[in-house]
Design a protein around this nucleic acid. Sequence first.
DNA 1: TACCAGGTGTGGC
DNA 2: GCCACACATGGT
Length: 276
Amino acid sequence: MKYEISCGKILISDTSEFSPKHILECGQVFRYLNSISGYKIFSKKSFCSLIYANGYVTIDSTDTDYFVRYFDLERDYGDIKRRLSGYPLMTEAIGYGGGVRILNQDPREMIISFIISANNNIPRIKGIIERLCAARGERLADGGYAFPDIGALKGLDRDFYAALGAGYRADYLVRTVDALNSGFDPELDALPLAEARKRLMSLSGVGRKVADCILLFGYHRSEVFPVDTWIEKVYRRIFSDEGRSAVYIADKMSEYYGDLAGYAQQYLYYYARENI
DNA sequence: TACCAGGTGTGGC
DNA sequence: GCCACACATGGT
C-alpha cells in the first residue's frame, strides 16, 4: 500500500486498507492502549503511537522500519480483498472490517501470548500480558515496558504466572519457557506447514488453535485458518454444517481459501465479533 | 447462578 | 483416533 515516511512518522493517506480499530480489534494483538488522541502500540522492545485524524493515519515511532514491517505495509490488501470477494459472506465481512491487516509480530511473543489466550477473554488476556511485561520486561523510554526476553523468564515457577492471573495456564508457561530456553528452535520459516505446526504443538499449552494463531500472527503463514468459538459460529452460518470439530473446520477452510485462508479468517472473525 | 471467553491436557475406550 | 472432563479467573 502507499505510505510516506518523514521525520520518524509513517503517513498513510488511503485508509480503506488500514483501519486502526479493525487491525487492533480483530484479536491478533493484545499490547495496545486506547486513548482520546489515538492508540499506543507495543511490540517486542518497540512502541509507536497511532493517530487517526482528518482521513490520515500517522504512525509515530523511533523505529519506522520496524513498524513498516509490523503493519505489513508492503502488502496489497486491495488485491487480497478482490480475490476474496467471490466467497460467501465475504462481501459483508469486508464491509465491516475492510481495514484489517495481519500484523507481523514476534514469534516468541506470540507463543507466550496465545498460550495465555486459551479459554480466556480478551480483556483478561491483555491484563495478564501487561502484568507480565511490567514484572519482567525492560523499561522503555516512554515509561512502558517491553515484552520480556525469554531469558528474563528463566526459572520462574508457576506461582509467578499464577500471581499474574494466568490461572491453570501457569504450568504450561513454566514448561514452554523452559523449552524455549533449552533448545527449542523458533526458526520455522523454512519448514513445511505441517512440520512447523507439529513443532509448535510440542510445546505445553499449544494445541492446534494456538499453534495456528502463532503461525498466522508470528510467521505470516496465511494458509492457516485458526478456529475458535466465534469462527465455529460463522462456519455453521455459512455452511449450515453442525457438529464438526474445530480441527475439521480448520483443515477444510484452509483448503477452501488456500493462501488467503488467514486473511479470510480475520475478516470473518471481526465480522462475527460485531454481528453475532 | 450458570455460562462464557481466540482451548489444552489427560485418561478411558 | 474420538470423547468427556477438569482446569483458574473475572465478567455478565
